[in-house]
Every structure is written in structure tokens, then in C-alpha cells.
Amino acid sequence: MALLKTIKEVGNYFNEIYDGVASLVRGMKVTGGYFIKRGQIVTQKYPENRATLKMFDNFKGELQLIHDENNQHSCNVCNTCARKCPNGSIEVIYKKVEGADGRSKKILDKYIYHLETCSFCGLCVPACDEHALRFDQEFEHAVFDKSKLTKVLNKPGSTCKVVKE
């Protein structure tokens, strides 16, 4: 009986070795397989593929005040976006002008966007009733000077198509 037990133990010893080696070989098959037949590479060669790199349509790059071909935006200075923003990243500065009918009107002077505090929650875009805002595809935000991250979104000389001057 003792002999039988010993034989069994020796058998277990070698079985253990066999199982272990088999499991290692199975793992090596995976890596070796990829060595022979290259797997799908998800790495993007970024600066080289700049020309072909296209972000998804919904990609949240940086905030943009939409201007049409006549350099007109549709911000009516309602300030909803600034109120919706959790971080205070948006400042809408307006000026009062005398309208054609003699009443004073608020028109956009500067639409200031603080990229440095923006957390891209996306609350401002659907908040705008005039659909004046969107996120563009720009993702290269790196600058050497923090003050460059404070941006004026309305282009120089642009006018508003919603509020007539």
C-alpha cells in the first residue's frame, strides 16, 4: 500500500509539472502567435497622420461660436450658457447700442471662453435657444502661456443676425 501511495505521489509530481508546462505553452502560443502574425495595432502615429486624422462628428473639442459666411453669429446675449456653465468658463460681455427704432439694444461685444477651466460637460451647447454654439474638432490645446487659453470667440467685425443693430 505504501508503495502504491508513493507511486501515486510521484505520478502527481510529474502530472503537476506537465500541467504547469502545458499552461505556460498555451500562454506562449498567444504571444508567439502575435509575433508571427501581427495583431491589429490601435496605436496612431499622431503627428504624421495629422492630415488624415478625423475626429468623430460629436467630438468635444473647444467651444465655438458659429459664424456663417457673412461673418454673422446668432448670439443674442441672453447669458444662458454662462449661467449653465458649472465652472464659470463663459463670460458674455455686451454693449448697449441705439437701435434704428430709437430703443437701446444689447449686442455682443466679447464672447470670452476660458478653455483652462472648461470641463467639457457640454451643458452650454444644448442650452442655447439660438443654436449659436457648438464644439469644434480642435484638440491641440497645448500652449506655453496660460493666458492664451482665454479666448474671444466672436470674430472681429462680426455682427449678429438675430438682434438687428
Binding site: T31, G32, Y34, F35, R38, G39, Q40, I41, V42, T43, K45
Partner: peptide
């Protein structure tokens, strides 16, 4: 290079 190839990298 070898480990990159095994790991599906460049």
C-alpha cells in the same frame, strides 16, 4: 521591438 510585436504595438 520584439515585445512590441507580441503586444500589438509599434
Amino acid at each position: 521591438k520584439i515585445c512590441a510585436r507580441m503586444q500589438n504595438r509599434l
